[in-house]
Simulated assay, not measured.
Amino acid sequence: MKKIITLSMFSLGLQSCLTNDANPEINIIAPSAFVINGESTTISVIDLATNETRSTISLENSTIDNHNGAKNLDIQFPHHIYLSPDGSKLSIGVPGVDLSEGHLGNHESTGHILIIDAKNGNILSKTELPKPNHNAIFSPDGKEIWTTLMEHHGKTLIYDASTMALKNTILVGEEPAEVTFSANNKYAFVANGGSNTVSVLDILEKKVIKTIAVGEEPVGAWLGVDGRMYVDNELGQSISIIDVEKLEVIETVKLEFKPGYVAYNQLLNEMWVSNAGQSYVHYFVRENNTWKKKGSFQTGLDAHAIAFTKDWKIAYVTNQGNLSVSVIDVISHQKIKDVQVGQKPNGIVLKH
C-alpha cells in the first residue's frame, strides 16, 4: 500500500527544534528513485525492484518550531534533487516559482534549500535564499552545499553542509540555473541562461577560472562519464559539449527541438536528449567522430530529466505533463511501463 507522509515539523538550520512524533515513519530501502513533483510539492519514492511508487513525502503543509512557536512555511515548486556522496541525505532546490514555464525572469520569489534524510524522508534543515535557485547539490566530498541565485547579477553560494552556514559567494553570469560537478571532482559548472555562457569554478579555490560561450539559454551542464559535460541550450535548441580537460566546447549538436535534459549512457555510448513539451526522448550515436541522431522512443508528455541505473540498462524519465515516470529498457529503447507520481515531476535521483 502506498503511504503518504506529511512532514509537519521543519528546521531553519540544524539548530532548530525538530520533532516528528505526529507523523508515521517510513523506511526507504534501496534501490529507490526519488522524484520531485513540483506542482504537488511532494517527493515520490519509487521502488526500483518493482517499479512502483511505494510512498509519497508531502512538503506542502510543513511548519517550523524555532523555539518561538510553530509557524507555517511556504514551500512551493521544489525542482531538482541530489544525493549526498555517502547516500544518507538528499538536497533539494526550491525556487518558489514554476520553472516548467521557462527559466528566465523569475526574480520575485525567494528560494530555499532543503536537506532531507534519505532513509526516512524527514527534513533535517531548511535554508532561505533571497532569490530563486534552480538546484542545490552536495560537493564531491559531501562537506558543502552549492546553489545559485537566479538573478541578473548571478551568484553561486556555497554552504557548510553540517551547519548550513554560508561560506562563499562567487559572482558568475546572468540568470544562472543548474550548478553541477565534473567527474574528476575538480570543477563546478554553472549554466548562465541570461548570458549564454557556462562558468567553470575551481572547487578547492572557490573561484571562476574560465567562462565558456555556449548556445542560447543554457540550463545545465550535465555530467558525462566520458570526460565531457553536456549543456542543453533551450532557446538555441542545441547541445554544447565541453571537454573537461580542455575546458572548451568541442562540438555543438543542432537539435531542431527544445531540449529538456541531456544524458550520456556509458553502456551504449549514446547521448539521450528529452524533447521538452513533447513525449519523446531522442538518442544519438557517434558516426565519423560526431553525434548523429539514431532514433527516438515515446515516454510521456513533456519528457524531462533522465536517470540511469548503475548498470546503465534501465532509464527513468520524468514526464512533467503526464504525472508519470517512464521506465525504459536501454538496449531495446522500449518503454517498460509508466509509474504514476505527482503533478509536474521534474528532478530525479537514484539510490542504489
Rank of each mutant, 00 (worst) to 15 (best):
V349D: 02
K344L: 12
P140H: 04
N184E: 10
G154C: 04
I348D: 07
G224I: 01
P345E: 01
I81V: 08
S324R: 03
T290M: 13
A188N: 05
S332W: 12
G121V: 01
L83V: 01
K293M: 15
E205N: 09
E245N: 11
Y264C: 01
I43Q: 03
L301M: 15
N23Y: 14
N319P: 02
Q343R: 12
T42R: 07
M271Y: 01
H282S: 11
Q320H: 09
I28N: 08
V244W: 03
S139K: 07
I5H: 02
T63R: 13
F10A: 14
H103Q: 11
G13D: 05
K293P: 09
A49L: 14
V330I: 14
W272V: 02
L204G: 09
H304L: 11
Q15A: 14
N23K: 15
A49V: 15
L149Q: 06
T41M: 10
I4R: 13
K119G: 14
Y230H: 03
S139I: 00
I29S: 11
N185A: 10
S139Q: 07
A221W: 03
E245S: 11
D329Y: 09
T252P: 06
I336D: 14
D86S: 06
P130K: 07
V281A: 04
V253E: 03
Q266V: 11
N120K: 06
I123M: 09
S16L: 07
S91H: 00
E287S: 13
S8Q: 12
A183S: 15
I92P: 00
H103N: 12
Y159K: 06
V94Q: 02
T50P: 04
N61D: 10
F284C: 05
M229D: 03
L235E: 14
I36C: 08
A303H: 00
D86I: 00
P24F: 09
D226T: 04
G38Y: 09
I57G: 00
S58M: 05
G236S: 04
F77C: 05
T53S: 07
L171M: 15
D338V: 00
K131W: 10
A177Y: 10
V249K: 02
E25P: 11
L166I: 10
G321H: 00
S326I: 04
L171H: 15
K126C: 14
E270P: 03
K335P: 12
I203S: 02
S240C: 09
V281Y: 01
H282P: 08
